[in-house]
Design a protein around this nucleic acid. Structure first.
Length: 349
DNA sequence: CGCATAAA
DNA sequence: TTTATGCGG
C-alpha cells in the first residue's frame, strides 16, 4: 500500500492517452503490477489461474497480454523489480503477513458457506508473490525482449532515479511513492484505456499523469515537506500518526513547516500531542532522499522477442491456450516487421 | 485484467 | 462497429 495522497493530487493530475505515450520509455513498478494482476485475475470464487502442476499463473497472463499491448502501441516498457527491503520496511511486511493470514481464514470460511462474493474479496487480500513467480515473470519479459531492471532495494527509488536521469520518460505505478522518491513524472492506470462496470454505472479508467513540480507548486510545498506529510499520513517505512490523514497532514505542514516544529511545539491532533522520535523520522526522510540505487543497470532498449521460447514457456510449461498465445505472438511479429521496415527506409535515406 | 465470443 | 459477458490457467 502506498502513501495515501489521492485527494492532494486530484487538482494536479491530468489525463493522457495511450497514443500520446508513443515511442516513450516507461519504467514500471513490477511488484505493484504483479500484485494487481494476482489480486484481480481470479475466478468467481477467488481461485487464481493455475497450470496443471498447480502453479499460479494469473500474473503471467496479465503481464503477457498487457505487455503485448504496450509493444503494439510502440510504447517501451521497462519493468523494475524490488530488491532487498530496507530494515524500516520489515515492520510493515510483518503486519501484511498477518493480514494475509487473517484474510486466508476468512476466505476459507466464506468458501465453506458458499458465499462467492465474500470468498473472492478475501482471496484477493491473500495475494502473495513468491520467488518462483518473480523468476517466471522476469523470464517471460526476457523472452519478449523487454528490459528488466533489478533494484538494489526499493524499486520505486530506482525508478525515480531512472526518470530523473532521463533514461526513461516516466514512472508507472498505482502508488504515489515514486513522487516521494522524487520522480518528476508518474503515470497511474497505465494500460489500454478501458471502460468497466462498477455496479450499474460504467466508468472509464483513463491513464493519469502527475508532474511532481506541478504538484509541489500547486500545494506550495517542497519535496521534503511532501515526504514529511507522507510520514505523518503513513508510508511503507513508517506507520504514520493515528488520526492524521492527507488533509490534516497538509494543514499541519502548511502551518508549522516541518515535523520538527510540530513536535517541538507539542501540536495536538484530536486532543493528542504529536510525539515522534525525530531520529527515526530523520532516518525515514533519508531513505526517501538518499535511497540505495543500482546505477549499473543493463540497456533499456528493447531486444528481439524469442518466439519459440515464449511459446514453450506459456503453452508447454504453463498450459496457456495455444490459440490465444499464437494470436498474441502474431501481433508481436507484425510490430517486428513494421519496425524493420522503418529502419530499412531510414537506412536508404 | 484482457481476450474471445455473442448479442445489439 | 460497438457493448456485454464469461472464461482464461
Amino acid at each position: 500500500m502506498g502513501v495515501k495522497i489521492r485527494e492532494l493530487v486530484k487538482d494536479t493530475k491530468r489525463i493522457i492517452t495511450f497514443e500520446n505515450l508513443f515511442n516513450k520509455k516507461i519504467a514500471i513498478d513490477a511488484f505493484n503490477t504483479l500484485y494487481q494482476f494476482l489480486a484481480i485475475i481470479r475466478q468467481q470464487d477467488g481461485t487464481p489461474l493455475k497450470d496443471y502442476q498447480g502453479n499460479i499463473t494469473s500474473h503471467l497472463s496479465g503481464l503477457f497480454y498487457r505487455t503485448i499491448n504496450f509493444l503494439e502501441g510502440n510504447i517501451h516498457p521497462i519493468y523494475v523489480f524490488d530488491g532487498k527491503p530496507s530494515n524500516l520496511k520489515l515492520e510493515i511486511i510483518r503486519e501484511r503477513k498477518e493480514r494475509k493470514l487473517e484474510a486466508k481464514a476468512k476466505m476459507e470460511e466464506a468458501q465453506l458457506k458458499g458465499d462467492l462474493v465474500e470468498a473472492r474479496k478475501f482471496a484477493q487480500a491473500t495475494s502473495k508473490l513468491d520467488e518462483k513467480m518473480i523468476e517466471d515473470s522476469k523470464n517471460l519479459l526476457d523472452f519478449m525482449g523487454v528490459p528488466v531492471v533489478q533494484a538494489s532495494s526499493e524499486g520505486e527509488a530506482q525508478i525515480a532515479y531512472m526518470v530523473n536521469k532521463g533514461d526513461v520518460w516516466g514512472s508507472a505505478s498505482q502508488d504515489y511513492d515514486t513522487l516521494l522518491f522524487g520522480a518528476k513524472r508518474l503515470l497511474r492506470n497505465f494500460a489500454v484505456t478501458r471502460s468497466r462496470k462498477v455496479g450499474d454505472t460504467s466508468i472509464t479508467l483513463d491513464i493519469e499523469w502527475i508532474l511532481l513540480p506541478r504538484l509541489l507548486e500547486n500545494l506550495d510545498i517542497t519535496r521534503e515537506q511532501l515526504i514529511e506529510m507522507g510520514i505523518l499520513i503513513g508510508t511503507d517505512f513508517f506507520q504514520g500518526v493515528k488520526g492524521i490523514g492527507e488533509k490534516t497532514a497538509y494543514s499541519l505542514i502548511k502551518k508549522h513547516n516541518s515535523i520538527e516544529e510540530i513536535v517541538s511545539k507539542k501540536v495536538k491532533v484530536r486532543g493528542q500531542i504529536i510525539d515522534l522520535n525525530l531520529d527515526l523520522i530523520e532516518m525515514v526522510k533519508d531513505l526517501f532522499l538518499n535511497p540505495s540505487i543500482e546505477e549499473n543497470y543493463p540497456s533499456l532498449n528493447k531486444g528481439k522477442p524469442k518466439f519459440d521460447k515464449i511459446e514453450d514457456f506459456l503453452i508447454n510449461k504453463h498450459n496457456f491456450s495455444e490459440s490465444r498465445v499464437k494470436n498474441a505472438l502474431e501481433r508481436l511479429k507484425k510490430i517486428e516487421s513494421a519496425s524493420k521496415q522503418t529502419s530499412l527506409e531510414q537506412f536508404f535515406k
